[in-house]
Design a binder for these strands. Structure first.
Length: 228
DNA sequence: TAAGCCTGAATTTTGTCTCA
DNA sequence: TGAGACAAAATTCAGGCTTA
């Protein structure tokens, strides 16, 4: 497989130069991250953050708080997060019930002490697959992986960490394996790298990329293919 | 033989494009 | 500018294979 021309940290530095230092993620702990996944149906993180903060401030983010809040109140809180708040509420309720069944303390302990077991548990939650579980463990600072989302995967694939535009579980694992030797155990760096890759995939390295604005273009397979 | 893993297809949701 | 069609992303699910 083709390898990227430069170490990953060089690309991340270029993205930090372009976008600046990303803001600290808002959720803390595994259940807040599950809530974060479900509170909004829009790709815009600012909008998602707004709904999450309101929910946290007005009712709290424990499974019990979510289950005891009247449905109309919850729908009202979730409405700014995009279409179909009722479906999102149903998923939140399902997640809260499962979290109570498993035990929040047990999940927290496993996240801290056994990432493999924690991944198995997290994948029982609807909407959380392998990438989602890895992301939660990264943000909880227990698994030193990059856990790129679809946007990040696209960027990394085009740089040479996998096939350009590949997706699905196989591509996720392939890129994860290719990245592993380049990753430090510095969680601040990993989290920022995750955020910057996501931002870059959303803004510039889209399905139809804006290569003229991209600081990674000289090393990008997609750009070089197009400019030949 | 049961549990776990892998792969690819299916499904759902969201984003983008085109056209009136 | 809005609606509909289409494409892409992310996850789920089913079936086959491997291993203990």
């Amino acid at each position: 497989m083709r390898r990227p021309a430069l170490p990953l940290r060089v690309y991340i530095d270029r993205l930090r130069g372009l976008y600046g230092r990303p803001k600290r993620p808002i959720p803390s702990g595994p259940f807040e991250w599950i809530i974060w996944e479900h509170v909004a149906a829009v790709p815009d993180d600012e909008q998602r953050a707004l709904v999450f903060r309101t929910l946290r401030q007005k009712i709290g983010t424990t499974p019990q708080a979510i289950l005891r809040t009247p449905k109309p109140k919850m729908i009202e809180l979730l409405a700014p997060g995009g279409p179909n708040p009722g479906a999102r509420l149903a998923r939140l309720h399902e997640a809260a019930e499962l979290m109570i069944e498993i035990g929040l303390a047990r999940v927290r302990t496993l996240v801290r002490e056994s990432p493999v077991e924690a991944t198995k548990l997290l994948k029982r939650f609807k909407g959380i697959g392998e990438p989602g579980a890895d992301r939660i463990l990264l943000f909880c600072r227990t698994q030193a992986a990059l856990a790129p989302d679809a946007n990040g995967l696209r960027v990394l694939g085009r740089l040479g960490y996998g096939k350009p535009n590949a997706n699905g579980p196989a591509a996720y694992r392939q890129i994860g394996d290719a990245l592993a030797p380049d990753l430090p155990r510095d969680y601040n760096w990993l989290i920022q790298a995750h955020q910057l890759l996501r931002r870059h995939g959303q803004d510039i390295c889209r399905a139809t990329p804006r290569c003229e604005a991209c600081p990674l273009a000289p090393d990008c397979a997609w750009f070089r293919r197009g400019s030949r």
